[in-house]
Design a protein around this nucleic acid. Structure first.
Lengths: 129, 129
DNA sequence: TCAGAAATAGTAATAATTACTATTTTTGGA
DNA sequence: TCCAAAAATAGTAATTATTACTATTTCTGA
């Protein structure tokens, strides 16, 4: 049985109001403004709990820590290989790609994950000068 | 200047002859049959070196350790959420997806990574009984 | 053959995350 | 309103995957 906690509410609220795809560490630093004694374990536990319930997204990619996203609508993510910024892409996601993949596969494919890499607008400008 | 090493040759050969997408730890265990004193650091260093040179693929996904693949031809990977087996998919990869994504993006997108998840043939059979 | 460069083995360190435990908070009844 | 059980927390320790460090060994080309 899930019980209310003000720490969890604060974490959820932070993700809903800051669409920067923060890491657990970033969330931890931010929440500490309001809850100076919150522990990193609590942040991880609640991020996992919220992600398992589908209230937030956990985004894993290559190297580096996982990112979290309050926007659960299907959308693609871009990661800048120079500054690690993660951005939402406007492109419509290919929702049925895994159904296509399943046609030539003996098992069951239920979902797929795609991430895009390159230089973010800011970093691509810097490289031009 | 790159120098020959029998350990590296053995690692490369293992990946070329075992298309099971092994982890560094799996490669380490296997190579130890021939080189009982090889260190895990040597395995990691050579896997990284080979991947950087494009001779093998490093595959990172959600949780769990990275996998390595001697097959450098572009192809998609499937990961079983039940047993963690990684399999190649026969489906043709969408090589130009990141060019499509770049059309609605202010920065530069140079590549993308897609992984598929579900139950492998073996695990999907088990669940039916 | 030999000297310098590169690679190795073995070990220590790091980064991200999870596990553990004693204490505190929440919550649905009495 | 009070209370006990369940759940959550803070603080800490442990784990996992990987990289860094260093003294020794192996390559290689002159």
């Amino acid at each position: 049985m899930l019980k209310y906690s003000k720490q969890r509410e604060s974490i959820k609220n932070y993700l809903d109001t800051h669409r920067i795809h923060p890491t657990a560490e970033t969330v931890y630093s931010a929440i500490r403004q309001d809850f100076p004694n919150i522990s990193l374990g609590t942040v991880y536990r609640n991020l996992n709990l919220l992600a398992d319930r589908g209230e937030i997204l956990r985004i894993s990619y290559g190297s580096g820590p996982d990112r979290y996203d309050g926007n659960t609508k299907p959308h693609y993510h871009f990661i800048c290989t120079s500054c690690d910024t993660m951005l939402d892409l406007k492109m419509e996601p290919l929702m049925h790609l895994h159904e296509l993949a399943e046609e030539t596969f003996e098992g069951i494919i239920t979902n797929h994950v795609t991430h895009f890499f390159g230089l973010c607008p800011e970093c691509s400008n810097k490289k031009n000068f």
